[in-house]
C-alpha cells in the first residue's frame, strides 16, 4: 500500500450510471486483479474504495457506478484533476491453474473480472465468461471481454439483451468460478458451482485493515474484507451469515 497522487485522464459515461475512469500515476503497488484503490473524493470525509478494472505501467483503469453523493461528485471531475489514492489494497484473485474456469459477474461487479480475464488469458487459460445486467442500458465491456478471444454469455433481467434471466440460469457444470457482483448474486452463484473465489463489497472505514469496520465471520474466525479480502475462497465463507 502507498498513498499516491493520480491524474484523471478520462472520466466517461459508458452505460447507465457507469463511468470508465482512467488515471495516470504509479501503478506498481497493484499486483493482482481484484485488488482495489481507496480514493479521496474532495469534499468527503472517508475515502471511497473502487476495484481495479485494469492496469499497466502508469495507467490505472477503474469502472465505477454512481450510487451516492461521493460517486456523483467523482463523476463530475474532469481530465487533468488530481486525486489522492491509496493504491494496492486488498488481496485480489489468486490465478489458479484450472483449465476452463468460469468468470461470473453482475453489474458493477464486472470491472475487476476484466483484469482477471486478461491475466488468465496471458497464462493460456480460457475462462468462460457470464455477465449479468438488469437491462441493455446497463451493459458495458462485453466487447472488451470478446476481444480477449473469450466466449461471453450475457443475461439481462428483462431480456432486452442476451439471455433473459439471471446469471445462475446459464451456469452449467461449473467446477471453478471467479465471481464478483452484488451479495444476493454471490449467494445464488455459490449454489451452482463447486469451488471458486468470490469478491465481496463492504462499507469500509480505512480500507487497509486497522479499523475493523468491515470484518465478516468466516469458518475459521473472521476476515477483514479490506485487508484479508475482498476475495474470499468458496470453502471458507459462511454463506448463511455473510
Amino acid at each position: 500500500m502507498r498513498e499516491l497522487v493520480f491524474t484523471i485522464q478520462k472520466n466517461q459515461l459508458i452505460a447507465k450510471h457507469m463511468f470508465n475512469f482512467v488515471l495516470t500515476g504509479d501503478t506498481s503497488d497493484i499486483m493482482k486483479p481484484g485488488q482495489f484503490v481507496n480514493i479521496q473524493v474532495p469534499g468527503f470525509f472517508l475515502r471511497r474504495p473502487f476495484s481495479v478494472c485494469d492496469w499497466r505501467e502508469n495507467e490505472l483503469t477503474l469502472i465505477y457506478k454512481v450510487v451516492g453523493n461521493g460517486t456523483e461528485a467523482l463523476s463530475k471531475m474532469s481530465a487533468g484533476q488530481e486525486l489522492s489514492i491509496l493504491s494496492g489494497l486488498g488481496n485480489g484473485y489468486e490465478l489458479r491453474e484450472i483449465k476452463n474456469p468460469f468468470i461470473i459477474g453482475g453489474g458493477a461487479g464486472v470491472p475487476p473480472l476484466y483484469g482477471l480475464a486478461k491475466r488468465l488469458v496471458e497464462k493460456n487459460i480460457t475462462p468462460k465468461i457470464i455477465l449479468g445486467f438488469n437491462n441493455s442500458d446497463e451493459i458495458f465491456y462485453v466487447n472488451e471481454f470478446k476481444s480477449l478471444g473469450l466466449e461471453v454469455t450475457v443475461t439481462t433481467l428483462d431480456g432486452s439483451y442476451g439471455v433473459k434471466g439471471l446469471v445462475t440460469d446459464v451456469i452449467d457444470n461449473c467446477e471453478y468460478a471467479y465471481v464478483c457482483g452484488p451479495l444476493p448474486m454471490l449467494k445464488a452463484v455459490h449454489k451452482k458451482v463447486s469451488d471458486g473465489q468470490f469478491s465481496f463489497e463492504a462499507r469500509m472505514g480505512c480500507g487497509f485493515g486497522v479499523c475493523m469496520g468491515c470484518s465478516v465471520k468466516i469458518k475459521d474466525g473472521y476476515k477483514r474484507i479490506c485487508k484479508d479480502g475482498p476475495v474470499l475462497n468458496y470453502s471458507e465463507i459462511l454463506w448463511d451469515e455473510i
Binding site: F44, F45, L46, A202, R203, M204, G205, C211, M212, G213, C214, S215, V216
Partner: peptide, 14 residues
C-alpha cells in the same frame, strides 16, 4: 454486525 461504518460531514460513525 455490518454495516459498522457510516459517514457524516467531517466525520465517521463506527
Amino acid at each position: 454486525d455490518l454495516p459498522r461504518i457510516a459517514e457524516s460531514s467531517s466525520g465517521v460513525i463506527n
